[in-house]
C-alpha cells in the first residue's frame, strides 16, 4: 500500500532502538520504605523513613547507572562526578514516574505515599509541591516508560559536573542517549515532531527541584535530629 512497513508496526521503533531496550531491562524494581510501625508518626519519623529510602534507592541506582550503555566506559572518576551531581535528579524522576497515576500524591514507595497532610507533617510541603509540578507536566504529556528511562539516563549524563576529566567522552554518552530519544520519538510519536525537545525542556525544572531537595536535606543534616546512612550523607556532602 506504499506505507512504510517498519513505522506502522507499533513496536517497530522499540525493537530497533537498542539503547531504549537496554534501559528498559536495566530499570530497577521499586523498593519498599517500610516505616517502623512501632514509632508514632512525626516529622522525624517521616524524614528518617525518607532518608533511609533514599540511601537504599541510591545503592540500586548506582547499579542501574552501570547498565546505561556507555556509562561504564567512562573513567571511574567521571562516573563518580556524574553521580555526585545527578543523583537527586534520578531519585526524584523515579518518584515522579511512580506518581503519574495518582492525583496530588507522591509515591516515594508503594508503601509510602505522601499526600498534602503528610508532606506538611514532614516539613516537605514546598518540596513535594515542586515535585508535583513535574508530575503534572509529564501527566499532560502522557510520558511513557520508554521516554522515562531515556530521560533519566540523559539527566545523569547531562548533570553538568564541574569535575569532568574527559568532556568528549561524556558528550558522546549524551549524544547516544539524545539520539536514542529522538529515534524513539520519530518512530513512536510521529504526531508530535517536537516531543523529544519538549521532554528535554522539562529538565530545568527537574534540576531546580533536585537542588532544592539537596539543600533541604543538607539543612536537616545540620540540625542533626534525623539519622542518615553513609552513602546518602556522602552524596549530600558532594555538592
Amino acid at each position: 500500500h506504499g506505507l512504510p512497513q517498519k513505522r506502522t508496526f507499533p513496536l517497530g521503533g522499540l525493537v530497533e532502538n537498542k539503547v531504549v531496550s537496554l534501559l528498559l531491562v536495566a530499570e530497577p524494581e521499586s523498593i519498599f520504605a517500610m516505616p517502623d510501625p512501632t514509632v508514632p508518626d512525626s516529622d522525624i519519623k517521616a524524614l528518617t523513613t525518607l532518608c533511609d529510602l533514599a540511601d537504599r534507592e541510591l545503592v540500586v541506582n548506582i547499579g542501574w547507572a552501570k547498565h546505561i550503555p556507555g556509562f561504564s566506559l567512562l573513567s571511574l572518576a567521571d562516573q563518580m562526578s556524574l553521580l555526585q551531581s545527578g543523583w537527586m535528579e534520578i531519585l526524584i524522576l523515579r518518584v515522579v514516574f511512580r506518581s503519574l497515576a495518582l492525583e496530588d500524591k507522591l509515591v516515594y514507595a508503594e508503601d509510602y505515599i505522601m499526600d498534602e497532610e503528610q508532606s506538611k507533617l514532614a516539613g516537605v510541603l514546598d518540596l513535594n509541591n515542586t515535585i508535583l509540578q513535574l508530575v503534572k507536566k509529564y501527566k499532560t504529556m502522557r510520558i511513557d516508560k520508554e521516554e522515562f528511562v531515556v530521560l533519566k539516563a540523559i539527566s545523569l549524563a547531562n548533570s553538568d559536573s564541574m569535575q569532568i576529566e574527559d568532556v568528549e567522552a561524556v558528550q558522546s554518552l549524551q549524544d547516544v542517549l539524545h539520539g536514542a530519544l529522538q529515534d524513539y520519538e520519530s518512530a513512536q510519536h510521529t504526531e508530535d515532531p517536537r516531543r523529544a525537545g519538549k521532554l528535554i525542556m522539562t529538565l530545568p525544572l527537574l534540576r531546580q527541584t533536585a537542588a532544592r531537595a539537596v539543600q533541604h536535606f543538607c539543612s536537616i543534616k545540620q540540625e542533626g535530629r534525623v539519622p542518615m546512612h553513609k552513602l546518602f550523607l556522602e552524596l549530600l556532602e558532594a555538592r
Binding site: 545503592v59 548506582i62 547499579g63 552501570k66 563518580m80 552513602l231
Partner: peptide, 20 residues
C-alpha cells in the same frame, strides 16, 4: 576522592544490584 569511599566502592564492584 577519599571522601567518597562508598560511591567509589559501589562503582568498582562488578556485581550491581540489577544483576542479582
Amino acid at each position: 576522592k577519599e571522601k567518597h569511599k562508598i560511591l567509589h566502592r559501589l562503582l568498582q564492584n562488578s556485581t550491581s544490584p540489577v544483576d542479582l
